[in-house]
Simulated assay, not measured.
Amino acid sequence: MTETILLDMDGVVLEGPGTPQSVYDRAADTAAAELGLEPTDRQRADLRAHGYETVESACCALGADPREFWRRKEAAASRLAADRIRSGERARYEDVAALESLAERATLALVSNNRHETVRFVADHLPVPFAAARGRDPTPEGFCRRKPDPHLLRETLDELGIEAGLYVGDRETDVLAAEEVGLEAAYLRRPHNADVPLPEDAAYEIESLGELGNVLEKR
């Protein structure tokens, strides 16, 4: 039987735990300019916020449709993120190379809280044959369905037509989401989580993606 391994993206495949705030700042400024908004300094700071409620409040004060602003902000953030990856400003971890040979014995998928457009770009950009790639929808509802909500993992499992497998993540939220859908969780150590206590429900603890082959042999 072919094994299935789902992987988180930020902090697992791409270096660093997530998209830097500077990207969201520039994305919000781009969305505001596209909509012809002239926010005060305080409103601009709120538009740059990561949470939807703060953005919604600022948009309403400016007479703008918050859902349209959010859509444009997410789209701009995805474009900026892709540029950073293309230029090498944001690199992949060296051990991602191990996934190329692992794909010969396992079905691989990329599942992340990041924007779907960005996850899809990374899946296409890397020399790894991912069978599926899933990120959050560019909507307020999509933002609310981030892990530990199991929505993204469940959608990916349904797409692949499987019910069991392994999920590789670098956060407790990854472990919680995996448990919710019946996946075993492999907790990957990276510099940003080196001293974080191992989540209680993690089935495996690994130091490199290169160890996944050994994990498969134990399952």
Rank of each mutant, 00 (worst) to 15 (best):
V119N: 08
V168G: 08
T107K: 10
R92P: 09
V168K: 06
V119C: 08
A185R: 09
N193W: 01
R189T: 10
A81D: 06
A164K: 11
D95C: 11
K147F: 04
L188I: 11
V111S: 04
A106I: 05
R115G: 09
R72K: 15
G165A: 10
V122Y: 01
A106Q: 02
L160Q: 07
E104F: 00
D83Y: 01
H125F: 15
E180Q: 14
G88C: 12
R90M: 11
L110F: 01
S87V: 10
L188Q: 08
A98P: 02
A109N: 03
L152I: 05
E172V: 15
R105S: 13
A75S: 14
D158L: 05
A178R: 00
Y93K: 03
D170P: 14
G182F: 11
A132W: 10
L80C: 07
T118Q: 03
A132L: 11
P127M: 05
C144P: 02
E94A: 15
E89I: 04
E74D: 15
E141G: 11
E74G: 03
D170V: 12
L183S: 05
E200K: 14
N113G: 15
A75M: 04
R189P: 06
V96G: 02
L157Y: 01
V111N: 09
E100H: 13
A109W: 02
R105K: 11
R72P: 00
A133F: 12
P127D: 13
H116Y: 07
P199L: 12
C144L: 13
E94T: 15
N114K: 00
R71D: 01
T139R: 09
R190L: 10
L99I: 06
E104W: 00
Y167V: 12
A75C: 01
K147E: 00
R72N: 00
V168M: 04
L198E: 12
A186C: 12
F121E: 06
V111K: 11
H192D: 06
G135Y: 09
R86Y: 12
L152P: 07
V122S: 01
S112V: 10
A77L: 05
A98R: 12
A81W: 13
A97Y: 00
F130A: 08
F143I: 02
A123L: 03
S87Q: 12
D137T: 09
R134G: 01
Y93D: 03
E184L: 15
H125V: 00
P129C: 08
R134A: 00
L99E: 10
R146Q: 15
F130S: 07
P127R: 03
V119Q: 05
R146W: 00
P148D: 09
P129M: 08
P129N: 08
A177G: 14
R154M: 04
D158I: 01
A103L: 03
K73S: 13
E159P: 00
V122F: 06
Y93E: 06
A106N: 00
D195M: 02
A178Y: 04
L126M: 11
Y93S: 04
